[in-house]
Every structure is written in C-alpha cells, then in structure tokens.
C-alpha cells in the first residue's frame, strides 16, 4: 500500500503545555482518514506541523515517502483552522494567488468557485463574505491544482446545515475520485459518515487508531433483561465470556470478549437457568467509543 503520510513519534510543546505527545500514524493512498479529538487534543497542531507551518520539537514526518518539499506541498490542498485570505482582494484574485503558487491553470479557479457555489461572487472582496461563505471559499482554494491529498481541519466550522451538507458532499465526491483525505474534526457524525480510518487524540496523545469499522466492531454491547438481575450480574461478572457488566436502567449491559456474540451469551444464560426476556445487540457508535476513550 502506497503511503501518503507517515508520522513518527511527533511531539510539540508550547512551554509546559504538551500539545502533541509522541504521535505516530500512517495514512495510505485513497484513505479518508479522520482525526478526532476534543478541543485542545492536538489535532490542528499535528496537521500544522506536518504541513510545515509549525516546527516540531521532536519526531519526523514524510509525505509521499520523502521529506516534505515544495513539490510535495503542491500535491496537497489544505485548509487549516480559519480561512486565511487577503480581505481586500476579490475571491478571483485570492484564488489567482493560490493558482500561481501551485502552478495551476487559471481555469481551475472557475471550477473551484463553481464547486463551492461562489462563482457569482468571484468579484466580491473576501472580507465581505459571511463566515459560511469564507469556509466554502477555503474549500475552493483547496481544490485548486487538483491535489492528490486534501487536508481539512474542521471544514464545516461556521456552516449552516445546508452548507454542512454541501461541504460533506464535496468531501465525499473527492473521496470517490480516489483522493486521499485527512479530515480533523470534533463532529463525530461527520467523521463516521465520511471516513474509512480514524485516529483519536486525547491531550496530545494518540489513544486509538484504525479502520472506522474495526474500531466500532471491536466491542459489542448486549442489553439483556431477566428475573433476578443481581444474581445474573454476579454470574456474568465471574464468567470468561464478559469483559464488563453494568446496569443500564432496569437492564444489564454486557460487553462481550472478542469473537463472542449475543447467541453465546443467550446460550450461557440458558445453561445457568436464566430465561432472557430481552436481548438487544447495541453496536457502539463512534460517539460511544470516542467518549469512552477520551473520558
């Protein structure tokens, strides 16, 4: 698998604050890679370091199996934090600057403005746009030069639901074209719906990393109900089947060990003389997993 980005033991601190601590992960070609984490977890800092705008204290990173170079930068379209453009220039002039830097043809400007639904405003000064439009303008700039990789940091910030959906559509359409996308967000639904892989950061440290499907299915919670719940809870706690058993309202929530399913649990309870009046498999959402990890 062709590696697009390799991050090895990256650390960055601001005085006593450890913003990124020994983070390592790889992004392969074609991945839609989500970086999840609460505010201040180090998502933006990690991306800013790998894009060369913040210097790391230790560790290294490679783009396209090579040290980061000017040429590599032009293969990447990035949006970091807030949209950064010249407020006194029109959208066209701002994108002209981006196109010149990336050696991209000027026809890309119209295409990008069209995708971001800003073509009618191409002669408007950037400073006169609403926050949502500014964010869409950032997406337009990202698309200039038809980059192989898109690095998007909170791309839906400040967008209304319609804008949110539009940006999501842009991301999905780019992913369908086979582009590699790195998406930092704290909107779990966004990541879950769009990403194939996810890294979860907490206080600058990587706490989980893998395919979204794997992270979700690694633990399955089964909700059960029976008579004599206290006794059943005690039996299940001592059983080799379970990882964790806890009360959830009037029911018991059981997290099974890997490789086991609700059928195994049902058979075990039946063996022990318990008839289950309720058995419900609750697949963990990314939100459950995320909240559990960053707790």
């Amino acid at each position: 698998m062709e590696k697009v980005l390799q991050i090895n033991n990256l650390s960055k601190n601001y005085g006593n604050l450890q913003a990124v601590n020994n983070v390592s992960f790889n992004v392969n070609k074609g991945d839609v890679y989500g970086i999840l984490g609460p505010n201040g977890s180090g998502k933006t800092t990690t991306l800013a370091v790998v894009l060369g705008i913040i210097n790391a204290n230790s560790g290294d990173y490679q783009w396209f199996d090579e040290p980061f170079s000017k040429l590599a930068r032009r293969r990447i379209g990035s949006l970091i934090e807030t949209p950064n453009f010249y407020p006194y220039l029109t959208l066209w002039e701002n994108l002209q600057i981006v196109a010149k830097i990336k050696d991209a043809p000027e026809k890309d400007i119209n295409y990008a403005l069209g995708v971001a639904d800003l073509l009618k405003r191409k002669h408007t000064n950037f400073g006169h746009l609403s926050l949502g439009m500014k964010q869409r303008m950032s997406m337009a700039a990202v698309l200039i030069g038809d980059p192989e990789v898109l690095v998007l940091d909170e791309p839906t910030n400040g967008l209304d639901p319609e804008g949110f959906a539009e940006v999501r559509n842009i991301i999905q359409s780019q992913a369908k074209k086979g582009k590699t996308i790195i998406l930092a967000s704290h909107v779990l639904d966004e990541v879950e719906k769009v990403c194939s892989h996810v890294a979860i950061l907490k206080s600058g440290e990587l706490v989980a990393n893998g395919r979204v499907g794997e992270l979700l299915s690694s633990e399955e919670t089964v909700i059960i109900h029976s008579e004599k719940m206290d006794v059943l809870k005690s039996i299940l706690n001592d059983s080799v089947l379970t990882k964790e058993v806890y009360l959830e309202g009037e029911d018991l929530a059981v997290i099974l060990n890997e490789g086991l399913g609700a059928g195994d649990l049902n058979a075990f309870c039946f063996e022990k003389g318990f008839s289950l009046s309720k058995i419900l498999v609750k697949k963990q959402s990314l939100e459950d997993q995320f909240l559990q990890l960053v707790k």
Partner: peptide
C-alpha cells in the same frame, strides 16, 4: 501561513 501551505 497560507502561502506556505499552498506551496511556497
């Protein structure tokens, strides 16, 4: 910052 991100 943006100019560097874009390739300068």
């Amino acid at each position: 910052r943006q100019n560097v991100i874009d390739g300068l």
